[in-house]
């Protein structure tokens, strides 16, 4: 990599609990990663791997126990108060959530929801709002008709498109996609994956793609880290990780994905 990393984590660690009530639970155990500007990093792992905690720290929903998250050399999450700090934070990092059914205000039309964000960030004034909102919707493959609809009349895939349009409306530097296609039907999943690739090709946004699905990660990302029990067990280009895995755990994950000629095996290690 010749360009300096845009986003990086240094020895990031998060513990929960502890204190008088015994040993703390280590959710993230000192991990490092970096992504170049406009790059896309996959954070792959199963439940309990710590990938969700990493994302929550990036979103500012959790504070790291130690270590740091840097964006262009400065701490990613500013704790500053006031409107200025809030808006600046929003333009640094945005997120698309897993559940398309609860990520939009059910009482707000799609147009109003977008307009609210556009006006807040001074991207468009009252008169230009609708037109800019429409442009944003067109970017994600929706149109005029959807402006006046409420989330209840949209399908899961359409809602996820709206969520993506809304997150990209503020032109963030980093977009976190937290299992963003996991809840969608297969044929819709493919549409969204293609859309994400198109959007990245036309802007400078950096993707952080959190997923349990290796095949899906490969579609959208350049590099990948595989997490297991709070640690990074493997890192490299996504293609290398998937086609030539080095860590036992990565191999185990790949073996478990159904494929042609797959023979599901039992490993008899039943633990709670």
């Amino acid at each position: 990599m010749t360009t300096p990393p845009q986003l990086s984590a240094r020895d990031l660690r998060k513990e929960f609990g502890g204190g008088r009530r015994g040993e703390p639970v280590v959710a993230v155990d000192g991990i490092d990663f970096e992504v170049a500007r406009g790059g896309a990093l996959a954070i792959v792992g199963e439940s309990g791997s710590g990938k969700t905690t990493v994302v929550r720290m990036m979103a500012g929903l959790e504070t790291p126990t130690s270590g740091e998250l840097l964006l262009d050399g400065a701490p990613l999450v500013h704790s500053g108060r006031g409107a200025e700090a809030r808006l600046a934070r929003a333009r640094r990092i945005q997120m698309v959530f897993q559940d398309p059914y609860s990520s939009l205000d059910p009482r707000q039309t799609i147009g109003d929801g977008l307009a609210e964000i556009l006006r807040l960030h001074g991207i468009a004034d009252r008169d230009a709002c609708e037109e800019v909102a429409l442009t944003q919707l067109r970017r994600v493959g929706l149109d005029q008709r959807h402006l006046s609809m409420r989330p209840g009349s949209l399908s899961g895939g359409q809602r996820q498109r709206v969520a993506i349009a809304r997150a990209l409306a503020v032109d963030p530097e980093v977009l976190i996609l937290d299992e963003a296609v996991a809840a969608l039907d297969v044929s819709i999943q493919a549409q969204i994956l293609n859309l994400l690739n198109d959007l990245r090709a036309e802007s400078e946004v950096t993707y952080l793609f959190v997923t349990h699905d290796l095949a899906v990660a490969q579609q959208v990302t350049d590099t990948a880290i595989v997490m297991h029990r709070g640690r990074v067990v493997e890192e490299g280009t996504t293609d290398a990780v998937l086609t030539d895995p080095q860590a036992d755990y990565t191999r185990r994950l790949l073996d478990a994905v159904p494929h042609r000629g797959w023979k599901p095996r039992r490993r008899l290690a039943a633990s709670a």
Binding site: L61, A90, Q94, S102, S103, D105, V170
Partner: peptide, 22 residues
Amino acid sequence: SMTYVNALEMLGVSGWTICVRH
């Protein structure tokens, strides 16, 4: 606890606006 509230927070919408308008 709805995700949309988190999303609005991340988009820079103020707590007041989220409470009153959403």
